[in-house]
Design a protein around this nucleic acid. Structure first.
Ligand code: ZN
Ligand code: ZN
Ligand code: ZN
Ligand code: ZN
Lengths: 162, 162
DNA sequence: AAATGTATTGTTATAATATAACAATAATTG
DNA sequence: CAATTATTGTTATATTATAACAATACATTT
């Protein structure tokens, strides 16, 4: 199991994360015949402004700054759209959204999340799927979706504990 | 990885689940020097009234029926108390709480959850811990808590799909 | 038992998150 | 262009959760 982005490495070139995410989004929208409207693209950019999951209500002021006088339903619609295309993941324990690092290959939501700085690093869980499939099959459960959250303290925040 | 309760077997003796949960709670409160007050015990009973996670606001009317004229803070306090002792788990994607089937041995929250009937069956994930520890160690992440949710359709609900 | 301190619950108000319902506009299609 | 569909705007409200302070119950010490 591996981290699939550099979220915990504060030296990484984050512009590269953002431009990659936008490129991916355009391709995926194209392929699925969906439109990446200005609002949707902006919401995606905002979600990708860091590796810290953002709540819908944190996006609203940023949308306003960009000249969109949007209300909650508009933000939730954009988030739903991006979520359905697998461009973002929802972190249930935070009620917040974070960009997906590998949307070209649909996969479960799985993250390490720092309780201090809130940074969420996506992890790759293919090695766990066999176990999950086994327990599901054993009980006749049709597995459709997975949310995996590993919560704790990232390396940076461990250093600066009180 | 195994299911650690019979949530998906509607024929199981659920009174046994409830009485076991209450017995466990009394022992655990005793051992930790905490008080299982009437409200806390009732909230635990209500959470255990089925294997479907319940939200705080679903508990309020049931508390009222039992003669407690409680407001949200009281319910949340009782839920927090039970959660801290490991007697219940929170299902992040549902904003709801469900009884823990094995509180004597503290462990991560891990469930199969039916999107149709909402039944949540706790699963045992010790075989996954090595993978989780490995990814955490690799990135200097201090793992403290885990939320694992497998979402889909239970066997009963697969049968009665439209 | 009375006094004191702590834990628990009551109470009111409000914050934070999310959706319903319908209107207006923009984009696409025929 | 007209008709249709998709997207966004708008208002209102539902749902989930917590802050702040008062009152009460319980435990501990004297
Ligand atoms: Zn980045
Ligand atoms: Zn951190
Ligand atoms: Zn049961
Ligand atoms: Zn079901």
């Amino acid at each position: 199991m591996l981290e699939i982005n550099d979220a915990f490495n504060s030296d990484h070139n984050h512009d590269h994360c953002v431009s990659g995410a936008l490129d991916n989004a355009k391709v995926i929208c194209q392929e699925s015949g969906q439109r990446l409207t200005p609002i949707r693209e902006l919401v995606l950019r905002l979600v990708w402004s860091s590796h810290k999951p953002l709540g819908a209500y944190e996006l609203l002021p940023a949308l306003a700054d960009a000249g969109f006088n949007s209300a909650p339903p508009t933000v939730y619609r954009a988030l739903d759209f991006l979520h359905q295309l697998g461009l973002i993941h929802k972190i249930g324990s935070l009620n917040a959204f974070v960009g997906c690092s590998n949307p070209e290959h649909p996969h479960p939501s799985a993250f390490m999340i720092c309780r201090e700085c809130k940074t969420a690093a996506e992890i790759e869980t293919s090695e766990l799927q066999e176990s999950f499939n086994r327990v599901a099959n054993t009980h006749g459960f049709q597995l459709e979706e997975e949310n995996i959250e590993l919560l704790g303290l990232c390396s940076d925040c461990r250093g600066s504990e009180s």
